[in-house]
Design a protein around this nucleic acid. Sequence first.
DNA 1: CTGATTTTGAAAATCATTATCAATTAGCTA
DNA 2: TAGCTAATTGATAATGATTTTCAAAATCAG
Lengths: 132, 132
Amino acid sequence: MKRNTWQREAVRSALGTQMGFVSAQGLHSSLKGSGSQIGLATVYRALADLAQEGEADSLQSPEGEALYRACSMAHHHHLICRSCGLTIEIEADEVEAWAQKTASLHGFSRPEHVVDIFGFCSACVPTVPAAS
Amino acid sequence: MKRNTWQREAVRSALGTQMGFVSAQGLHSSLKGSGSQIGLATVYRALADLAQEGEADSLQSPEGEALYRACSMAHHHHLICRSCGLTIEIEADEVEAWAQKTASLHGFSRPEHVVDIFGFCSACVPTVPAAS
DNA sequence: CTGATTTTGAAAATCATTATCAATTAGCTA
DNA sequence: TAGCTAATTGATAATGATTTTCAAAATCAG
């Protein structure tokens, strides 16, 4: 049976106050910084649970880190600023449809698509070097 | 100056014979299995170079591993079987356009989108358990 | 309150990837 | 072809994120 611990609540709550995606490590630091004595392993466990239960959204950053974000909506995608982390949730019915169509067109089933856009938001554009 | 070594050729060649995406570790094992004495670090370096030069395509698997695949086309997406690794390259002009539009609509620049579909190909569907 | 079971957390174990650095090698030049 | 020099290699150590371990602490039911 799944029990309710203050740790799990702390993670859920901390995730809720985040404006964008956070890594488990980042959330742990954040929690620790706020005085919590929660352990790192616990944050990982709570985040994994939350993600599995659909309360959190998870994705892999281009660098390979797992990032999490509180989420209530069923399914959506993200527009993430590489510099400041600003995250905009985007709904993309057309992409949804496209993914389904494409998958079934090739005989694939149970498609799970990864559709995220990483870029630089208007506030951060001036601070980053131009592409080579 | 960039030199030509048999190691780099071996990696390029091995990547070319792969039908789907491979991890650096996997490619290394494959190379070793074929009698090559190439080092793991070298495979990582060669793969990173290939990817940077545009000769290889790289993406993060849902598990967080970096996967590579030989690639010649400028830009495209993938439909990858989670079970057998079969990879189908897909062109998605509409998604391309959507990503651009969405990014600029929110003031984002230099958008790099990750659009890949992981599913089960028709041959593998029967072998996997249904979604919960 | 008590007992049974789950959860925690510090530290060790994994795993992928990157850095180190001495030895090797490619490609140039004479 | 011999020699030079900088780039490359590879065994291994280092790193960093994530997972596992397992004894101690905490939760929930009765």
